[in-house]
Design a protein around this nucleic acid. Sequence first.
RNA 1: GUCCCCAUCGUCUAGCCUGGCCUAGGACAUUGCCCUUUCAAGGCAGUAACACGGGUUCAAAUCCCGUUGGGGACACCA
Length: 470
Amino acid sequence: MTQVRVRFAPSPTGFLHIGGVRTALFNWLFARQQKGVFILRIEDTDQSRSTDESIQAIIEGMKWVGLDWDEGPFRQTERIDLYRSYAMKLLEKGAAYWCVCKAEELDARRKEAEAKGLPQKYDGRCRDRGLTNQAGDAALRFKAPQEGETVVDDLIKGKIIFDNSVLDDLIILRSNGYPTYNFSVVVDDALMNITHVVRGDDHLTNTPRQIPIFEALGFPVPHFGHLPMILGSDKARLSKRHGATSIMAYKDMGYLPEAMVNYLVRLGWSHGDQELFVRQELIEKFAWKNVQTSAAVFNPEKLLWLNAEYIKTSHPDQVAQALVPLLREAGLQDEVSAMPADRLAQLVVLVKERAKTLVEMVDWVRPYLGQSVSFDEEAVKKFLTPALAPTLSKLLARFESLPMFSKQEWEATFKTFVEEEGMKIGQLAQPVRVALTGRTASPGLFDVMEVLGRDRTLFRLRQGIERASV
RNA sequence: GUCCCCAUCGUCUAGCCUGGCCUAGGACAUUGCCCUUUCAAGGCAGUAACACGGGUUCAAAUCCCGUUGGGGACACCA
């Protein structure tokens, strides 16, 4: 059995798209499972649209979701001579011919055909003219078979039959000497010994065009697999209109890469009823037969749930680490720098059930960073009332008499005090919460005190009493 | 227009290949209840789907054909 070799071949014409990440992910999972090779190849033969920033964005995105490649990144523009020489081989063999039709003429003819409702196909007028490229401005076309049929045995969709009469004589070398996509992919997939070409559904009709080129070049034809598309909520192809589609936008919004991967893999693949997978599990359980044949709607709410799930269950150190850059961005760099890593992990544990994203977590963590709190005025008005100041002072005295902080002891003390005062827990818990955190919503009161420590708890309680007294 | 792909709750999906175990399961969202010092989290319960029409069969979500609907491709883009 030959070694599996797969590739992810994006074109660098923008950021790394969510759909691209999913395609890359399926390829990567298959490669890892089969102990194969995963190749990153940049398809930049369209010079007018490709940018170096896009290449960087692709690499950055791949790294963020942890999809490492074994070979590459290769750039097609560095391999132009290769494509030219293979194109010339086809010309010599009589499997390609020069075409002097101008782009504008072709365009006009295509429009005319469209208007008449005819197939929009090259009419082959240069096919048998035996033209040479004297002027140097001809394009090279592949002589596509016109009879018989081309069969694609798709890994996902099964057997698909195309009638060769629909095949066009594709341009393989532009008049500027650069290869076109359908030719450079074939040459690269063949030369890189790709065994399985797995790409988006939108390439399905390219496959019968590419297979004859493999054959004409004398290369073995790889296996093909076509992944269904990802749609937006309106069932149209996912695009900017549907909101964030760049993978890095999700990093910025506070998503964990593992959650992203888990969500994307379940969009089109399943393993029974299982929803949560660790990466090793995905590698073991992945199978083409469980890949969905139909398109899937991207559901941001489920992604959000998954992210919350990962925030709750991931190791706190790991979450804390991912949180640091967001805290810095929020202007909390001094607080972050002053804090040992395990302190931040402790805060993560404190608030992780409440934050669905790291961005939300920044806000949840904020009250526990400094010595004093910043009060939410509404909360103060409602709970830190002058009437309550004496009670709070009595409570403060009670806590001050305890030389050491202990969650159990302080909680018991609080509850006894509430009882003595003839109050309900909630009546006093809310004011204390506001004094301690500045807000009406927080983790459990005694968990908060534990994280704050004895000194800061007492300090903030005193501050709260001051606020209540005015 | 031509060619190709697809069709189970609002959404992601299990089941389909190898018909009966399906009164169609799980998850997200949503609704109600419970827990509760707040907010969450958690627990329990509920609403909700086999696109339609024909076959084949004792029996069809599952196999076949058609219709409808959605998507994709038809470039000197990838």
